[in-house]
């Protein structure tokens, strides 16, 4: 199981400023393999989220290819790409990401529902238990705190049981204890199930859970020191 970004870059048109476009992500290569947790850190506006969106099939790169095994993601049609995103790739978007008309459990089961697959209810409950939101299954998103909502989004991604899980600021609204809980859960998911997890974060603590880590600076990807093994169990 391999995800490979080949010379991908993203350029945005810019109406103001000197240049008429700006390079959010400079051409880069990156490989994600099963069983590893990759953490990407960097300042705001450094292009982290853009890279994550390109990797998880939400944003087509200006140049380059993203390979999912032998499939070039952005050569698929909308239906096939949507299906792939739903079945094999999971994303935890930034900020609030729950549909208010559905309950927490329904939100978690939404990806499976969108494709009419059998609902992984017991998986969902297990993950909810693990992230300490088991009691919130019937609640409405509007009743939840920011930290709880974050964990709902993470449980939703885990319940998809994806080959590749992309999490954008998964710990942004969490206290220290929950931050550790989430990070360890994500790492364990990668290790125990032999899947790949890609985390974009400001949280320096995340480095401790990474098998590999990178820093993004001005759209450039820079490998960071190997922190493997430094995390608490």
């Amino acid at each position: 199981m391999l995800m490979k970004a080949e010379n991908i870059s993203k350029r945005y048109l810019r109406k103001t400023g000197g240049a008429n476009y700006f390079l959010a992500v400079k051409p880069l290569n990156l490989e994600l393999s099963a069983g590893e947790t990759v953490v990407l850190m960097g300042r705001s506006g450094s292009g982290k989220t853009t890279l994550l969106n390109m990797l998880c099939g939400l944003l087509s790169p200006t140049e380059g290819e993203v390979w999912f095994n032998d499939t070039s993601l952005y050569r698929l049609d909308d239906q096939a790409l949507s299906c792939l995103r739903s079945e094999r790739i999971a994303a935890v978007p930034q900020g609030r990401s729950a549909i208010d008309t559905l309950t927490v459990l329904e939100n978690i089961l939404l990806p499976a529902k969108l494709y009419g697959r059998s609902l992984p209810v017991s998986d969902a409950r297990q993950w909810m238990e693990r992230l300490d939101i088991a009691h919130l299954g019937d609640a409405r998103p509007a009743e939840l705190s920011g930290g709880e909502l974050r964990r709902v989004a993470i449980v939703r991604a885990l319940t998809q049981s994806p080959d590749f899980l992309f999490a954008d600021e998964p710990t942004s609204d969490l206290d220290d204890e929950n931050t550790r809980l989430v990070l360890s859960t994500l790492r364990d998911y990668a290790h125990e199930r032999n899947r790949a997890v890609f985390i974009v974060t400001h949280e320096s603590e995340a480095m401790a859970y990474a098998d590999r880590s990178f820093r993004m600076d001005g759209g450039q990807l820079i490998p960071a020191a190997d922190m493997k093994g430094a995390a608490p169990a």
Binding site: L58, S82, C83, R156
Partner: peptide, 16 residues
């Protein structure tokens, strides 16, 4: 907008 974006991110196709 946000809800539609989210659903698309979760795998909803344009058709749906």
């Amino acid at each position: 907008r946000r809800e539609i974006g989210l659903r698309k991110a979760l795998g909803a196709s344009d058709g749906s």
